[in-house]
């Protein structure tokens, strides 16, 4: 299965953000999406998640030459969005009930808590009293439970402490075989460490950076050169 984006265009007024995006993201890989500030990474995600209408082009899922609409998308935002009036347990209960038919291997709520190591004390606290990083954990967890075909992650690891960040990385690696994972970040080391492919959003288009025959240092330099390059 792969996510195919064809000739996608998006502008705000006169400002072109994405111009002719053509790319294929394959299942089983984590893609690191790198781009400078304001390059349009979030806009691209918003388009794929249908928060924004695209101006032109299309995107779809393709498997064995069969095309289908890419609607099964999970999106983890950099600022965690959770319903603050619920406890973590209530939110998970609600989420699981609503999505029961879609969730493939349904576990108990406690098992889900264990998956991201949320302690007993915190499980029945209102989400409004959670720290930024904890909220982010819940947001990530919900998306992992839903197990969408495509998972978009917008700077998700920056708010975690080193231990949790490491746990989350492992978690993402463990689920990648069943998903198309696109991971946007500013931090190159993180991208190189976690991702299988590096994709750059520059000059309103997406380009894959080939690491073949390059040492890590040369690869890094190439990425920076590509990002710097003015047209």
């Amino acid at each position: 299965m792969k996510l195919v984006i064809k000739n996608l265009k998006k502008s705000f007024g006169d400002r072109v953000i994405l111009k002719d995006i053509n790319f294929e993201f394959e299942k089983g890989k984590i893609y690191g999406l790198l781009g400078r500030n304001g390059a349009g990474k979030t806009t691209l995600f918003n388009c794929l998640n249908e928060d924004l209408l695209i101006d032109e082009g299309t995107f779809y899922l393709e498997e064995n030459n069969q095309k289908k609409k890419a609607t099964d998308i999970g999106y983890v935002l950099s600022t965690p969005n959770v319903p603050e009036f619920l406890t973590a347990r209530e939110f998970l209960e609600f989420f699981v009930t609503i999505n029961k038919e879609k969730i493939k291997s349904l576990k108990t709520i406690d098992e889900y808590f264990d998956l991201v190591k949320i302690s007993k004390n915190d499980q029945d606290k209102l989400l409004k009293d959670y720290s930024h990083g904890m909220k982010n954990k819940i947001q990530m967890l919900v998306n992992i439970i839903a197990s969408p075909e495509i998972l978009l992650l917008d700077e998700p690891l920056t708010s975690f402490d080193v231990v949790v960040a490491e746990e989350m990385k492992e978690l993402l690696k463990s689920i990648k075989k069943d998903h198309i994972l696109i991971f946007s970040t500013h931090i190159m080391e993180l991208a190189l460490d976690l991702c299988d492919e590096i994709v750059i959003l520059n000059h309103q288009t997406l380009t894959k950076i080939d690491s073949k025959n390059l040492t890590e240092k040369e690869f890094k330099q190439k990425i920076i050169d590509d990002l710097k390059e003015e047209k």
Partner: peptide, 18 residues
Amino acid sequence: INCDHAMLSYKFYREPRV
């Protein structure tokens, strides 16, 4: 502010049935 602001970022919450 206390509910939809957060929930609308989840795709399932925007499904017609929900």
